[in-house]
Structures are given as C-alpha cells and as structure tokens.
Design a binder for these strands. Structure first.
Lengths: 198, 198
DNA sequence: AATAATTTTAATCAGATGATTAAATATTGA
DNA sequence: TCAATATTTAATCATCTGATTAAAATTATT
C-alpha cells in the first residue's frame, strides 16, 4: 500500500512542519506521528528538505487557490468578490489555524523568490478578476493598489496572529474568538469600502 | 572586559535568533558572529535556551515600550496618539525589520502565556491612556475595542510581512518600499478614523 | 508456485551540536 | 608584587539527528 504510507507521512509532516517549522522538526517525530519506520521518509521523499519543500509548495498553492477560488468567478461585483474572499479565508483558517503563520514564515524565508518562481504562481495573481477589479477601483479613486492589497490581507490575517494576545489581554476563550471572527467577516468588506472612499 | 564580551554575545544572538529563530540557530554561529570562544556563551548565559529567553524578553519589552512611549503622553487627542504610535512603530521596524516576524513567532509559540506573565507586561497595556481613549471612543461609536486593536496592529504590521511578496509582485526595490511605508504613516490614522466612523 | 519487484524493518553510520572541563591567561585587590 | 579571582581558550564529551544499508517481509508478475 505505497500510496497509503506516502500519504500518512505527508499528513504527519504537514501537521508537524506547519506548527514547528523546518529546523525544530525532527524526522523521527514525523515517522512516529505517521506510525511508520523512519527509513520510509527517505524512501518516499529523498530527504527532510525535499519533504519540507513538498509541504511548503502544497500549502502555498492551497493558500493561493483560496484566493483564486473566488477571484475569477465572473459576474461578481468587487464588493461581492471581497466578501467571498474573506469568507473563504476565514473558513480555511478556522479549519487549519496554523496556516497563516506558516505561510508568512515561508514567504519571509531567505530563498522565497526562487521558490515562488519555481512553483509558478507569480503571474497568476495579477491576471485574476479580483486584482483587475481592485486595480480599476483604485485607479478611479486615486488609490494605491499595493496599499489596498496590504489592507485587505492585513485585516484578514491579523486576528489569527493576534489570537494568543487577545487570549491573555481579554481572557478570550475559543468561543469568544470564533464569535469575533464571524463578526469580522461582515465588517472587513465594509471597512475596505470605507477606506476606498476616504 | 566582561561587560563588553557579554554584550557582544547578546548582539550576535539578537541578530541571529531574530532572523533564524531558536531551532535553526547554532550556538557556534553566535560565537563566531560575536568573535568569541564558544564556551563563553555558557559562561555568561547558562544555556542556549537562557540566552534565547534573554533576547525574547528584551525584544518583547522593547516592542511594548514602543507602544507605551506614546501611550501615556498626556494632552494628546486619540488622533495624535495613533499618529505617533504608527510613526514610532514604523521608525523601529525600518531600523530593525526582523522584529515584526520575530514578535509574532514569539507570541504564537506554545509557552507564551506563562512567559508573558513572567515578564509582567500584561496589566500594563490596559492601563495606558491609548487603550483608555480607544476604549472610550469605541464605546461612544458602538464599536468592539478588540476589532479596533486588531485593525490598528494589522494595518501597521502587514506591510512588513508582505514585503517579499510585494517584491516579486511589483518588482519593488527597497526605495519603493520605504516610499510606500512613509505614505502609509499618514494614511493609517485616516483609515482608522474612517473605520471608526463606519 | 516460483520468481521478480516493491516495501518495510532494524541496525548503524557520520556528522552536527550543546555543553563541560581543565588548563592558560588576564585582571583585581591586598 | 603576588596571590586570589575572573575570563578565555582548546579539547573533548555525550547526545541528537538525518541518512544509509542490508536483510526481511510483502506484493505483483509470469
């Protein structure tokens, strides 16, 4: 059952790499989590680094797909598109809360430029309807598209980073957090519009 | 020259820990960067972990101080206070760009709650004028203070995380980035106000 | 069933790494 | 000055860890 073993390893690697990062992860931990002999990691994936690259590109592609998923749906207004984008992100992040931090760490790792070129998601984003519509909207209102993209992503991702702080500062539990996040689904599109109309 | 050596080690540790994190950093690299014998790390700081804790709490305190610096200056309106806060942050982050990611990783590490309690910065924030003024403003306009804090921090910190992405997406160089950041100094206070008036 | 190919296992290697030690050197204080 | 103290060094330890290997077990092919 080669397929099964390989997937068990990947699932374990995904889980541990995403929470602990490359250096802090030991291949033995992955093997144990997968319930599999250590040597099989090197049998199916050549090295720890290769396995990590696999998880990295998989995660990055998935992250990109979450954007693309709504980005090209035709007949959507910019408002509807942003609304869906936020909801897609939040659904994904609630399901897998380690993703935001993992992605940011990937993106800020030293060799990212060549890596992004290698998996080829660079040109894609600018060709999405989401980007085109936002760029057009910014043009019309004399706004910098870069600032708006940063705002959109920043507002979306920030609560997931801030979670542990909110926990100590407001003694929030998981339920409070989820409620706040769900409020935020409705608010971000309104805020983005307000910012655009500034 | 004990003082000098200890500080050389700390400076090297600061530099490497902040960019590579705990696990990826080798004590030998710190020693070399400091131009110092490896055994001196254990002589001045008991262990790698102790040295790391030192850098962690130092960085966290510094990060907090950047808030507190403007947070209690009396006779400031909420607008002026936010304006200064953003400028303080941006000055600090431009000077030491590794800080935002390092802080987020600290805050999202498993043992953070006990660590924050240990260095005792928990109660401080809520007692600042910044917090009180924001809380009051939110109350008046029927807004959730948590959402507003997330917005403020998210908008401030996002560009520093997004930097490598902007680099590949818009072929930005350092100068473009700095220009964009400086624009943002003026914009964030306006955006926050717009959001509050939503 | 017999053989070949694939997958899994246990054992081990080689190098990396955090830490320690004992001796050497430098500094301080009487 | 000289003994006590503090600092620095080179060598080494013990453990961890990624990777390999050769043999065993399993599965596929004829």
């Amino acid at each position: 059952m080669s397929e099964k073993t390989e997937e068990k390893i990947k699932a374990a690697a995904r889980k541990i790499f995403r929470t602990k990062g490359f250096a802090a992860t030991r291949t033995r931990d992955i093997a144990e989590e997968a319930g599999v002999n250590l040597a099989l990691l090197n049998y199916y994936f050549k090295s720890k680094q290769d396995l990590y690259n696999e998880i990295m590109s998989e995660t990055l592609k998935q992250f990109a797909a979450t954007i693309m998923g709504t980005a090209n749906n035709p007949d959507l207004s910019i408002e509807e598109r942003i609304d869906r984008l936020i909801n897609n992100y939040f659904d994904k992040f609630i399901e897998e809360p380690e993703i935001p931090l993992f992605v940011i760490n990937i993106v800020n790792s030293p060799d990212i430029e060549s890596f992004i070129n290698r998996i080829g998601i660079k040109g894609l984003f600018k060709s999405t309807l989401l980007y085109k519509q936002m760029a057009e909207g910014c043009e019309k209102k004399d706004k910098d598209i870069r600032q708006m993209l940063i705002n959109l992503m920043g507002l979306a991702v920030a609560p997931f980073f801030a979670k542990p702080i909110l926990r100590v500062l407001f003694e929030e539990d998981q339920e409070d957090f989820t409620r706040m996040i769900n409020e935020r689904r409705k608010l971000i599109p309104i805020w983005i519009k307000a910012i655009l109309d500034t």
